[in-house]
Design a protein around this nucleic acid. Structure first.
Lengths: 206, 206
DNA sequence: CGTATTGGATACGTTCGTGTATCGAACGTT
DNA sequence: AACGTTCGATACACGAACGTATCCAATACG
């Protein structure tokens, strides 16, 4: 008889269904307009189920966000790791182009970020995520660049630049759903930034 | 006796007070959690005043947003126009660094953008703003670059890249309030992008 | 200076979401 | 197979925000 939460299989299932529903509803209704009731009905439960699994909507959101956030980082990391020892620039460009542009996830993240700016504790959560993105993605980028014969000059600066470009261009792509130009410009900007923050390794280096 | 809205001086004053209050409250409470009541009490009115000036909270928000948005664009344009015929790179860099990073405005815009992705009409509003930014800012940038001896290769691409970098780095600066590094990185990235999308004009050009 | 009109305040009924307290049913353990 | 435990449903009381309908006061106009 565990003291806090037994966490049986059944419990885990409904918890996950609530988490999944949360992403959908938060994306559809918006961060501030989301209610406990709608999340529950989306998950096929009543509020009773919710209150026996979470204590507040904030708690549910945070749990959902952490889960999805780490999953996203893993996805990106995997996509970039796949570059391996292929052809030079094009493989890298293709890998960057494969980074998913997810409508629902963007909305949730953007609104949560805005919200986090009001709350020191949440701001720390966002800062931590930024760090974990850097930690997970940068090594892979550096390695991929090395395979194309380039050495990164300032890793931290490159990391932040890539995140900024990613975030900034994601909106543009989403706002122009049927304009392929946006995606192309995005990829080009990614490559330009990679280029700006690295130098070719020549034979006489070092 | 005008048919629609007489728009007397008194009316205009309370309208403006409501618009000003709207920015504050939307920034503080968030897009979804903002209520008519709070906006009114912030402006020093009751709901009666509101409903005799606007028909819905959405209408108030849009009016406020258009007003502020064009004001912001004008500010940026003015800041960049000031580069005039000064010293080369540094003046441009200083001008870019002077672009305001406004906490409240960022929150409002970010949340509104997320919301606009759900509504075709609003999405068009955002797209129009993007265009007006390009139209207002690009010529000034191109001119400033020309004074430093550089010619822009792809104006549209540069415009979108600058907006993306602006948006992406603004969050980073706001999330790290007391870290000067973020601002410096921001400026550096701006300059790198300007550099990537332009070439030096040499004597043998053309 | 007086009167008509407009702008904003007050009062009201309604809807919607919340959180708690209670109850019934599915689970798994021996 | 029976029984105790846990999970989720149902019922309830409360509060918040909305939008309208009505009323009083400030303003503009003759």
């Amino acid at each position: 008889m565990p003291a806090a939460t037994p966490l049986t299989a059944r419990r885990a299932r409904t918890r996950q269904r609530l988490l999944d529903a949360a992403l959908d509803v938060f994306a559809e209704e918006g961060f501030g307009r989301t209610t406990v009731e709608r999340v529950c009905e989306r998950a096929g439960f009543t509020r009773g189920a919710f209150y026996s699994n979470f204590t507040s909507l904030d708690e549910l959101f945070l749990a959902m966000w952490e889960q999805r956030s780490t999953a996203m980082v893993d996805d990106v990391r995997a996509a970039l790791a796949g570059v391996a020892d292929g052809s030079p620039d094009d493989a890298l460009r293709a890998a960057l182009a494969a980074i998913p542009v997810d409508d629902a996830w963007y909305r949730v993240t953007a609104e949560f970020t805005a919200h986090a700016l009001r709350n020191p504790a949440l701001r720390r959560v966002m800062a931590a995520r930024e760090r974990s993105i850097q930690d997970a993605v940068l090594p892979v980028i550096v390695a991929a660049l090395a395979r194309t014969g380039r050495r990164v000059t300032d890793e931290a600066a490159l990391g932040h630049a890539l995140v900024a470009v990613h975030d900034g261009t994601t909106v543009q792509v989403l706002l122009e759903p049927d304009d392929a130009t946006a995606r192309i410009r995005r990829e080009a900007l990614f490559m330009n930034v990679l280029h700006a923050y690295s130098t070719p390794i020549t034979a006489d280096d070092r």
